Computed example of a mutant assay.
Amino acid sequence: MSNNSEHCCLSCGVDISNKRIDAKYCSGRCRMRYCRSRKKDQLIEELVELFRQLPNHSVQFTDKGFYLEEWDVINRTTQKWYLSELKSMSNQQLNGLIEGKKWRLAGENLANLLFNRS
């Protein structure tokens, strides 16, 4: 295989044709940035799935992407998380939000079991 072909870093797009033929990143920093970005995308996907399962939660699509919406029945308010806001959150903040939604889903499932709701 020729070493003259264009070979770019998966994270920043810099030409890395002068690196090893199996190189994917230009540096360790880019490798970590790419891995964290992929992890964040997975966390956002998990959050979207939780919002689809929970009552009073929805995923709304716009021309710029989507946002997650939660309707608070007691206070009659909505809270929205736009994709840009989710991407700016740390993975730890996203994990906290996911854990809270998982607890809420578990409570809903338990209530449905106890009170035979469908």
Rank of each mutant, 00 (worst) to 15 (best):
S2P: 11
S5F: 13
C8Y: 07
C12G: 08
V14P: 00
D15L: 10
D15N: 15
N18I: 12
K19N: 12
I21E: 08
S27D: 02
C30F: 00
R33T: 08
R33G: 02
R33S: 07
Y34K: 09
C35Q: 13
R36Q: 15
R36E: 11
R36C: 08
R38W: 04
K39E: 03
K39H: 06
D41H: 09
L43S: 02
L43W: 00
I44P: 04
V48N: 06
V48R: 06
E49A: 13
L50V: 09
Q53W: 11
L54V: 02
P55Q: 10
S58W: 00
K64Y: 11
F66I: 04
F66D: 00
Y67E: 08
L68R: 03
L68E: 01
L68M: 03
W71K: 13
D72C: 07
D72T: 08
I74N: 12
T77A: 06
T78K: 10
T78R: 14
W81N: 07
W81E: 07
W81T: 03
Y82H: 15
Y82K: 15
L83I: 12
S84Q: 15
S84H: 15
L86Y: 02
L86Q: 06
L86D: 03
M89I: 02
S90C: 09
N91Y: 02
N91C: 13
Q92V: 11
Q93P: 01
L94W: 05
L94D: 04
L94T: 02
N95R: 12
G96M: 09
G96C: 10
L97R: 07
G100W: 00
G100Y: 04
R104L: 12
L105P: 04
L105N: 06
E108G: 04
N109E: 10
N112V: 01
L113F: 07
L113D: 13
S118T: 15
S118K: 11
